[in-house]
Structures are given as C-alpha cells and as structure tokens.
Simulated assay, not measured.
Amino acid sequence: MDVNFGGGILGLVILILDIWAIINIVQSSSSNGAKVLWVLLVLLLPVVGLIIWFFAGPRGRAA
C-alpha cells in the first residue's frame, strides 16, 4: 500500500466537506456580503475555515 494513501483520503474528505459547507453557505438566509466572506474563508483556509464555519457560520435555508 502507498504511504500517501491516507493523506489522499483525508484530502478528499476535506474537499467534500468544504463543498458541502459552501453549498450550505450559499443556501443560507444571510446577506450576500456575509456569504461571500464565509465562502472565501472556507476556500482560503479549508480546514480551519470549515471548523469556524461549523461552529459560527450562517444557518438556515433561504425562503
């Protein structure tokens, strides 16, 4: 087995979670400015941004 296999799986999981977070951010009822800032945070800091979004990010779906 390749030594980097675990890192590749971890990277894929982080990518999937980041995409899920971005979809939830875009569908939230927050202002467009807040959505842009949250998406940028998740894109620029994939792991840290995801954790911050999970605990403090916008919630709820747009009507």
Rank of each mutant, 00 (worst) to 15 (best):
L40P: 01
W53P: 03
L12G: 10
L50S: 15
L45G: 00
G11T: 12
V36F: 14
D18N: 15
A34F: 07
V36G: 13
G60S: 02
I51C: 09
S28V: 03
G49M: 00
F5H: 09
G8Y: 08
A63S: 11
L15S: 15
D2Q: 09
V13W: 09
W38D: 01
V36Y: 10
V48D: 03
I16M: 08
V13I: 02
K35Q: 06
L17C: 10
V39P: 00
G7W: 07
V26S: 08
V48T: 07
N32G: 15
N24P: 08
V3S: 10
A21H: 11
L40T: 07
V47C: 05
L40V: 03
A63K: 09
F54V: 01
V48E: 03
L41R: 14
I16Q: 08
P58S: 10
S31A: 00
W38L: 02
P46T: 00
G60Y: 08
L44S: 02
I16A: 10
N24W: 01
K35T: 06
A63P: 15
G7T: 05
G33L: 01
W38Y: 08
A63N: 11
S30A: 15
N4Y: 11
N24I: 02
W20D: 14
G49D: 02
I25G: 12
F5W: 06
L12P: 04
A34H: 13
I19G: 10
G6Q: 10
L45I: 00
G57S: 01
I9R: 05
I25R: 02
V3M: 06
N24K: 13
W53Y: 15
P58V: 04
R59S: 13
L12E: 05
P46H: 13
I19W: 14
Q27N: 13
I19S: 08
A21I: 01
W20M: 06
W53G: 01
F5Y: 09
L44N: 07
I22V: 15
G7Q: 14
I51Y: 13
N32H: 11
I19E: 09
R59H: 11
L50I: 00
G6C: 06
Q27M: 04
V47G: 03
K35G: 05
A63G: 15
L10A: 14
A56Y: 10
I16G: 05
V42S: 01
I23E: 03
V26W: 13
V39T: 14
S29N: 15
D2Y: 08
L41S: 15
F54W: 14
I16N: 09
G7M: 07
L37H: 03
V48Y: 13
I9N: 04
G8Q: 11
G33W: 01
G60D: 04
I9H: 06
A21M: 02
V47H: 05
L44I: 01
I23C: 12
F54P: 03
M1V: 04
W20S: 05
L15H: 09
V36T: 15
I9K: 06
L15C: 14
V42A: 03
V26H: 12
I14N: 12
V48K: 04
G57C: 00
I23K: 12
V26C: 09
S30Y: 12
G11W: 10
A56I: 14
S28F: 04
P58R: 06
L10R: 11
A63C: 07
L15F: 13
I14V: 15
L37G: 02
Q27S: 14
P46S: 07
S28W: 05
M1D: 11
S31W: 05
V26F: 12
W20I: 08
W53D: 00
I52G: 04
N4H: 06
N24V: 03
I9L: 14
